[in-house]
Design a binder for these strands. Sequence first.
DNA 1: GTCTATAAAAAGATAGAC
DNA 2: GTCTATCTTTTTATAGAC
Lengths: 185, 185
Amino acid sequence: MARPPAARGKVLDAYISLLCEEGERAATLDATAARAGVSKGGLLYHFASKDALADAVIEAAEVHIARDVEAMCSAAEGGAAYFIRTSAEVDTELDRHLVALHRLAQAGVKNATEKIESANERWYRGILDDVGSKDLAHLVMLTGEGLYAELSLPGTWYQRNFDGELDRLLQLVSTLKKLGNLNEH
Amino acid sequence: MARPPAARGKVLDAYISLLCEEGERAATLDATAARAGVSKGGLLYHFASKDALADAVIEAAEVHIARDVEAMCSAAEGGAAYFIRTSAEVDTELDRHLVALHRLAQAGVKNATEKIESANERWYRGILDDVGSKDLAHLVMLTGEGLYAELSLPGTWYQRNFDGELDRLLQLVSTLKKLGNLNEH
DNA sequence: GTCTATAAAAAGATAGAC
DNA sequence: GTCTATCTTTTTATAGAC
């Protein structure tokens, strides 16, 4: 079948949601099946093991990552602004997949760690192409990663009044960009 | 006893190490007891349950956090530079406890999430006192959090040649500080 | 493809000897 | 305080009916 059956997608989606909302500990086969509205046996028909489920998350994440890297390269605002702006976006499909990836990585799934590293490398290249300076590129990366870390902890205190801040953060980076390689000689 | 027995400390230390090195999934009572060189029964004498073990991590982390916040407030280099510099330090006791805290938080331990939030609030205050601008303070926070996120993923690619970069990152922030509230009106 | 029933393993926790 | 032995529960995985 060119398109996989709907139930498979529902299971994968349920697993990702559980990872994001309740953490890896709570994302058991039982809980995943229940949330997907299928039986455990039904789940295991589509994903032969828990590892297979994790692999599917990683594979699905790659699709969104690749799409994002491409969008970043052709973004009119430049790679740095694009990266920071999208890092602050929650509830996008990319965001959900990245949070799930981080949960798996922290739980000890090696392939998830590698996928995150690979994505970071590609994003870093896109930012470096934009800003020129390695230091500033790293600062932008750190800012974006910090945003992820903040936003993926449920109920973090600065989530509430963050909207206006993003624009000013972008301005800050843009100013730095114009100042050029402040610290390089 | 004023000082708790040595075995208790060994167990707690083993649990933290496992959390950091192998992730929450691998940090079972069995594995922890084995690494501490005691039996499961011996472990459970000191920590009546797994939750008690997690609580002990949180409590131990608080000691290091409080010490760090105090050091930050009296740091000659200023809160912002202190925060970024220490965020890049790995293998300190504070770092180990924070990584463990993050592993627990991502696994779904609520008290760990709250402790991280509480620590972030205190660090943010220290940074804000130093730099004055809320935007810049947030940028500094994000940078530090990004550093943690990077460094706590095992084997991340930019860990290798990061040494010189930290100094330049600090310079960058110092420049921003001198420029003042770039974007506030 | 999806279910129920069941097995097998792992993890958390208790009891009691030493 | 620490151990061994045991129990319970949870989680993963299999088998086979429909």
